[in-house]
Structure formats: structure tokens, C-alpha cells
Nucleic acid binder design. Structure first.
Lengths: 354, 354
DNA sequence: TTGTAGGCGTTATCAG
DNA sequence: CTGATAACGCCTACAA
């Protein structure tokens, strides 16, 4: 490959001049400038990101650490980040942790030696990441945590309003007349799970309802988790008339369990998911869900990281994105016979922002 | 961060010795060796991948170019590649092309300057990539094309047996008694689309059936494509009794169109998808599909790339993975009244490998 | 405005 | 077996 030296020769100028032209780091007289640019075009020269990175102590790479790209929520996040990165001349290095903190630390340590400009992390759990990320910051790299936060996190972050999102969904169900609401949370060591539960609790409290013992089940954020916990819920007496599943995969598992128990959603039991993935549109019944935009989450994170690169010591930013309850066919008023009180049933209402 | 010089000082040896210990490039006497290793442990030293890459003319990065991580087929591919990469100390740089050849070329050119050891590409279309990839090969990087192949591709590749997969599905439908089979292909400038159509045609021919005019529709590989083309198919006279959708998203769109036309799958029309994504299990009816393993595709590609790095001039390898027809609820024998000939209906058969 | 030269952290060559 | 030392390609003072 061509390098700067060759360009310099071809253009009949010195190495420094080539660099100046390329980086606009000094005013170069037009004829020389043109000769350099011509040589660049002629050879298709592109500067070595490696050498440049070595010299500048920073590359145009953005490191991104996520739990698992196979979880349908994350591709959107990655894509959002990649688009913003690409638009600004950055590339994404992607790593999966499988929610394994050990793997996360390995990636964190390994990636640093590529001197990325920024690091976007969806933490594997609530472990403190300060030590690891601090070394990035010392190296001049921006660090942004998204979706959930590690213990003691005070740096930049992008999350969604989990509390309001969940509260909204629960309130909606309560408004339909439900009094026996159950919740299947994600792993409670994740801050987003905690917050969704908090929102659910808040809505119940506001309505003067109690969370019955056993009506709160903690599951993994996947179909299997939703399936098994729903099986438990459906056996309880009294059986809940509505379930808030704290993500869509859990809701999907719940739907399967409900179907398997020969119950009908929404007639026997209402179901609301969280995330609003595409797949909620193709189940039957179509799944109601608290929508959030994974793309926006990733894009905002990448933008925040790039901003931080430019403005090293602005105060930490905490972006909180909105959610939107999308009501579809999986919710209905409870059966009259299953409740003493019966409020007017509403169905097919449109979006309710939170 | 600590660097080799510091380690050398701390261990009281020379720079070269440190390098030798770290890379096993020369036998170093135990006491010295130990002192170096201790210094490394003490400082948490990690070699700069940038400097190393610059010197070696090659990094531990694997570049991966895919159409769109939002398409649910690709995350599996990426994950397979990442796992193999990670296990061998490599990291993945991920880029999306949106099937835009221009964007693809930009990525191709930009990524090269990071000197990745390998490049895994899912081509955006049938454009010739030889020029671009040749420059990778000259730089000593392995190039592997997967899923579909660009024009004139003679290098390493990993694909699936698209022809047999599609033929198998069509034969199965024919075996059920269907005589009016339609196919919705993907974009026909993609080799996988071409091959699936080829397989479909072969099965028809073998059964002495003809592909009726209009029964072959070309769509984009997404829900919208499947939806609109199915609408067309359902209006035809005679209406096809079975549709082979050349990927699952198309099948999903088809299902929606069928539902919207107040028809019933599989009673009125049988439907088979391609890919066997998770979402085929949660539709109703559950979607039959020609399964392939995206994870294996990605993993094989990464492995092939790493093998190639080790064995630069072994002959090009073309790995072809198998598919497996997964029969679920979306297929049935055609209605007796819709066909003169009526073969014995079969349902719920298990997997049929191809 | 342009050229020169030192050095970023490694690896690899070559003496000792 | 160990230690200097010269690149790798680029950026950036600093000198001209």
C-alpha cells in the first residue's frame, strides 16, 4: 500500500507537507496542495489508522460491549450506534458478554489496547465497572453506559424511563378494571428490571391495590423464563387477571404458557410486554407492549460518546428516553365473573406516551 | 499505561528480552523469564495492539460486513463469528451496508487501513468485489464470502445448500398433493435467491409440474415484500394452494396477507418459509421452514478466515452447510375440492434433512 | 509556508 | 541466550 512517503515523493513535497494538507493542520499553498491531493487520488492512498492511532493515542474505533446480539432487543441498539459512528468516520468493535461479568472484564481489558475513542457498554450485571472504565477515561476514551447501569455509575449514560413505562402499563390495566395484577420481572440485579418493578409497584399503590404474595416472579429475560414463571402464576388462587411481563421475550413465553393451559389471552388473562419488539406484531393475539426505541438508545449513546471525545470535561450527561405504551389485542377488561368490581371495558385504544 | 520499556526496566532486562518472553520467539532462561512475567503481572501490562499491528502489518481484528443487523437472520451469523474470533483472541469490527454496494465499498476501503487479519463479507449484491478484496489479500488478509456470493467469486466461501433446501420444501408440498405451487423469491440478483428458485423449479420439473405464469414473484427479503406479493398471488385464478417463501420474513408477510384476505393457513393455502428463525415458532399457525444455522454459518466463516491466515496458500475452500426442512402447522394437503387429484393427506411429519 | 527529525510501542534482525 | 537498534507509518514541534 501507498504511504505518506510515497505521496510526498510523487507530489515532490516533504512528508510534513502531505500531513498538513491531509489534516488541514497548516495552510499549504495551492499548487503544492493540489499536487498532494492529486497524488492521493492517483494512488488511492488512505492513511494507516494504526500508525495514526499509535501516534495520536486514539483510534477511530468505538468499542461496544453488549450482552448478546441474539437477543432481539440488541441489534437495534447496535445499529443505532453503528450508524452514528459511521456517519462520523468511526467503526464499531462489537463484543458479547452473555451477561457474564468475567467475560465483560476480559473484553474491557482487551479492547483498551486498541485505543478506541469511546466505549459503549450495556453492563452484564450490577458489578462495579468503575475500575475498568476509569482506565479508559485516563486513556482519553469516552465511556457511556446504556440500558442499565452498573453499581455506583456516575459517568455518561443513556437509559429509558423504566419506572414510568411500567407504571403506565400497570395503570392502564388497572383502568381496565383489573385488580389481580401480577408481574414477571427480569433479573433483579439489573437496574432496568428494578425500575420496572418499581413502576409497577407505584401504579398499584396509587390505585390502592396490593401486590399479592407470589404475584411477583423474577425471571431471566427470555422466553423460557417467561414460560416457567407464567406456569406458576396460572396455578395460583386467585389466578391473576393480568400480567405485566418486563420484556417481550418473557411475554412471549407467557403467551405460550397461557395457550398451553388452554386459557385465552386476553379473555382469561391480559398480557403486556416491554420493549415493543417487532415480534409483538406477529403473535396472536398481537402483544401489547411498552415500546422503547433500541435504535435511538444506541444512536444517542454513540452521539454522547463522540460529544464527550470533543468536550472531555463537561459534566456527566444522563439521557433518559421516553417509552410509549402500545395497546394491542392482548389486553381486555377482566371477565365480570372474575371480579366483584367491573369497570367499563375499553379496547383498542391508541398509544399512551409516558 | 505501562509499556514494554517499563517492563524491561522493572525486570532489569532489555526490551528485546521482554518481547521474546511475551511472544515465545526465543528461549529465555527461567530467572529472567520469571522476572519479566512478574513485572507484567504487577503492572497489568498489555501490549498495544496498535503498535503490534503496525509492526507486524496485521492486527487481531476481523472485519465483518453484513447487510443489516436488524434483519433477524444476521445476528446469529455475527454471533457465530464473534465467538470463534473471541476464542482465538480476535475482535470483530462490524459494518452494515443496507445492501448498498456503495456503502459496502466505503467500508471495504476504510476497514483495510486497520489491517485486519481477515474479512468476512455477506455481499450486498452481485457486484464484483474482486478488486476490493484483492487488495486485502495482497495485504495478507484472509477474505471469506458467506451466505451469497459476488460475481466471479473464486475465494473462500461458506454458503448453504440453497438448491436442495428449496427443492426439498417444494417436493414435500408436492408430496402432500399440491399441484398449484407458487414461489416468492428474494431479490434475484442475490445468488441465494437464485439458487432457491432453482431448487423450486427442479422439484416442480421432477414432478412433471409447470410453474404457472405469475406464480413466481420476486420480493425484497422482508415482511413488506412478502405481504405485497402474496396479495398478488391470492388474486390469481386458479389461486395457488401452496407458497414457498424464500425467507421467513417473506413468509411472515405472506401470513399477514393470507389472514387479511380471510383465508386460512394451512386449510386454504400452505406456506413454507426459509431460514427457520425463532419467530417461526411463535406465529400461528407455526411456520414450516427450511432451517439453516446462521450461527454455524458465521462460526465456519470465522474459522475459515483464521485457517487461511495460518495457511496462506491452500486452495480455496467452499463450505456448503446443510438445511433441514422443519414441518410445522402451516402446511397441509390441499382441499379436495381445489384439486382434481387428491393424495392422502399427511401432517406433522418431522424433520427432513437435505 | 515548507521541511526536518524525533518518537508513539512493537517486533525482528543481528551482533555479542 | 540476551541486548542494541532499526524499522512500521504517521503526527507535530521546531527550524528554516
Amino acid at each position: 500500500m501507498a504511504n505518506m512517503k510515497k505521496i510526498a515523493e510523487l507530489a515532490g513535497v516533504s512528508l510534513g507537507t502531505v500531513s498538513h494538507v491531509l489534516n488541514g493542520t497548516a495552510r499549504v499553498r495551492e499548487p503544492l496542495r493540489k499536487r498532494v491531493l492529486d497524488a492521493v487520488r492517483l494512488t488511492g492512498y488512505q492513511p494507516s489508522q494504526l500508525a495514526r492511532g499509535l501516534r495520536r493515542d486514539k483510534t477511530n474505533l468505538l468499542a461496544m460491549i453488549i450482552p448478546d446480539i441474539l437477543n432481539p432487543f440488541f441489534p437495534g441498539v447496535v445499529r443505532g450506534a453503528e450508524d452514528v459512528a459511521f456517519a462520523n468516520g468511526y467503526r464499531l468493535v462489537l463484543c458479547n458478554t452473555d451477561n457474564d461479568h468475567g467475560k465483560e472484564v476480559m473484553h474491557l481489558n482487551a479492547l483498551r489496547t486498541y485505543l478506541p475513542s469511546g466505549l459503549i457498554v450495556i453492563p452484564s450485571d450490577f458489578s462495579d465497572l468503575t475500575a475498568q472504565t476509569e482506565s479508559y477515561r485516563r486513556a482519553g476514551a469516552a465511556v457511556v453506559c446504556i440500558d442499565r447501569l452498573p453499581r455506583n455509575w456516575i459517568g455518561d449514560s443513556v437509559t429509558i424511563n423504566n419506572v414510568d413505562g411500567a407504571a403506565n402499563a400497570a395503570s392502564y390495566l388497572i383502568g381496565l378494571g383489573h385488580r389481580h395484577l401480577a408481574v414477571i420481572t427480569g433479573p433483579l440485579h439489573l437496574t432496568n428490571s428494578q425500575d420496572r418493578l418499581k413502576g409497577f409497584r407505584r401504579a398499584l399503590k396509587q390505585a390502592g391495590l396490593e401486590l399479592m404474595p407470589g404475584y411477583m416472579q423474577e425471571a431471566t429475560f427470555d422466553r423460557a423464563g417467561g414460560y416457567s414463571k407464567t406456569k406458576i402464576l396460572l396455578k395460583m388462587v386467585p389466578r391473576p387477571t393480568a400480567i405485566l411481563a418486563c420484556n417481550d421475550l418473557i411475554a412471549l413465553g407467557a403467551l405460550l404458557a397461557i395457550r398451553e393451559e388452554k386459557l385465552h389471552c386476553p379473555d382469561d388473562i391480559s398480557l403486556v410486554g416491554f420493549d415493543g419488539l417487532d415480534l409483538t406484531e406477529t403473535t396472536s393475539p398481537q402483544l401489547s407492549s411498552v415500546y422503547q426505541s433500541p435504535y435511538q438508545l444506541g444512536a444517542a449513546a454513540a452521539q454522547l460518546a463522540l460529544d464527550r471525545v470533543a468536550q472531555k470535561d463537561a459534566p456527566a450527561k444522563h439521557i433518559v428516553l421516553k417509552t410509549e405504551l402500545r395497546v394491542r389485542d392482548s389486553v381486555a377488561a377482566p371477565r365480570p365473573d372474575s371480579e366483584a368490581i367491573h369497570t367499563t371495558p375499553r379496547r383498542k385504544s391508541r398509544s399512551v406516551a409516558s
